[in-house]
Amino acid sequence: MANKQVEIIVYGAEQLCPSCVNLPSSKETFEWLEAAVVRKFPDQPFKISYVDIYNPPAEEGKASFARQVIEEDMFYPVVLIEGEVVGEGNPRLKTIFAEMEKHGYGA
């Protein structure tokens, strides 16, 4: 059982990144990811938030990473767990689940 609530942040934008044409939108990925994590780790709280890279919140950490996604031409959505990049463009559930398990989450 996780001893602290992990934060998952999905950075993305309304428009798809140029090389992500056939992939789901950032928002769709966010919703799909949230549902998948809830199914995989029931009764284990976590926090998930979506950050629009072109309209980030005032919170400095999130705003500065949003700039980094744009400046470094990262494939979005970019998924972070506790500050670690665990997925870019087409995030894989297996990788995300493995990172959650490192933080004490158990299926």
Rank of each mutant, 00 (worst) to 15 (best):
F65K: 06
P57Q: 14
E84G: 01
Y50D: 01
V69D: 01
T95F: 03
P91G: 04
M74C: 04
N90S: 11
S49G: 08
A35I: 10
V86N: 03
Q44N: 01
K47A: 11
M100H: 06
A58D: 14
F75V: 02
K47R: 14
Y50E: 02
R92C: 02
P77N: 10
A66C: 11
P56K: 11
K102V: 12
Y76E: 10
Y54S: 12
G87W: 04
N90D: 08
V78P: 00
E60W: 08
G61W: 02
P42W: 07
Y54R: 14
W32K: 14
F30C: 00
P57L: 12
F65G: 02
Y54A: 07
E99S: 10
F46I: 01
K94W: 03
F30K: 00
P77G: 07
F97Q: 01
E31A: 06
F75P: 00
D73N: 13
E101Y: 08
F65S: 04
E59R: 15
L33R: 00
P45G: 10
E31K: 05
M100N: 04
E34S: 11
F46N: 05
D52C: 09
V38L: 06
V85R: 02
E99R: 13
W32M: 08
K47V: 11
V69M: 09
K102W: 06
K94A: 13
A58H: 09
E101S: 07
D52R: 11
V51M: 02
V51Q: 02
R92D: 11
D52M: 10
E59K: 15
A36K: 14
T29M: 10
G83K: 05
F65V: 09
V86M: 07
Q44S: 01
D52N: 15
K62V: 04
A36V: 06
P77M: 13
R92K: 15
V69L: 05
W32P: 00
F65Q: 08
I53N: 02
I70C: 09
S49R: 15
Y50F: 15
